[in-house]
C-alpha cells in the first residue's frame, strides 16, 4: 500500500514496475490516470491549480486504500495525486490496483477513484483565457457513484 501527494509528474510504467517487483502472485494490474482537460464545458482553460489539506489528505487516502484491501484480495495498491499548477494534458492522479485476477483489480481501481473523489481534501481551480480563476464545483454524479459501493 502506498499513497503520495506531490507536485512532480509520475511515470506510470515505473509505478507498475514498483508494484510488481518481487510479487509473482500478481496476475492483473489495473491503472487509472486522471488528466487535465483543455476545457471546462465550452470554455477553454489555460491551467488548473490543485490545493489540498496536508496531513488530512494522506490520512484519507490511506483509509480509502485500507478499505479497498478489506473488500478485495489485493496484492498491492498505489495512489499518486499531484498538487500545484497543472496544464491541459498534464497527469493529475494515478491509481494502481494489483490482484491475482482481473475482477478484483478492476473493481478496486474504480472504488479507489470513486472514494477519493468524494473524500480526499483536494480542490481544483481552473484559470480561463482571460486569466480569471474559477473553483470547480463538486458533481452530484460523484456522490451517486459512491452510493453503489455502500454495503
Amino acid at each position: 500500500m502506498s499513497v503520495r501527494v506531490q507536485s512532480e509528474d509520475f511515470d506510470i510504467g515505473r509505478e507498475i514496475a514498483a508494484v510488481m517487483t518481487g510479487n509473482t502472485d500478481i496476475g492483473a494490474v489495473v491503472t487509472f490516470t486522471g488528466v487535465v482537460r483543455g476545457a471546462a464545458g465550452d470554455a477553454a482553460i489555460t491551467s488548473m491549480t490543485l490545493e489540498h489539506y496536508p496531513g488530512m489528505t494522506e490520512s484519507e487516502l490511506e483509509q480509502v486504500e485500507a478499505e479497498a484491501h478489506k473488500r478485495w484480495p489485493l496484492h498491492a495498491t498505489r495512489i499518486v495525486h499531484r498538487v500545484g499548477m497543472l496544464m491541459p494534458g498534464d497527469n493529475i492522479v494515478l491509481v494502481v490496483a494489483a490482484s491475482a485476477h482481473r475482477h478484483a483489480a478492476f473493481e478496486a481501481a474504480a472504488f479507489l477513484m470513486d472514494y477519493l473523489k468524494t473524500r480526499a481534501p483536494f480542490w481544483k481551480k481552473e484559470t480561463d483565457l482571460s486569466g480569471t480563476g474559477h473553483w470547480v464545483d463538486a458533481r452530484e454524479s460523484d456522490d451517486e457513484a459512491l452510493e453503489k459501493w455502500k454495503k
Binding site: 486522471g34 490543485l50 489540498h52 489539506y53 496531513g55 488530512m56 490520512s59 495525486h81 493529475i92 492522479v93 477513484m113 477519493l116 473523489k117 468524494t118 473524500r119 480526499a120 481534501p121 483536494f122 480542490w123 481544483k124 473553483w135 470547480v136 464545483d137 463538486a138
Partner: peptide, 26 residues
C-alpha cells in the same frame, strides 16, 4: 483533527478545525 465531521459534532478536545467546500480532486 483531520476527520470529516457533521455540523452537530462537538468541539471539546479539538485542536484543529478545518472548513472547506465539497472536495473536487481526482
Amino acid at each position: 483533527d483531520h476527520t470529516h465531521v457533521q455540523r452537530d459534532a462537538r468541539l471539546a478536545g479539538a485542536r484543529e478545525v478545518a472548513f472547506f467546500p465539497p472536495v473536487t480532486g481526482g
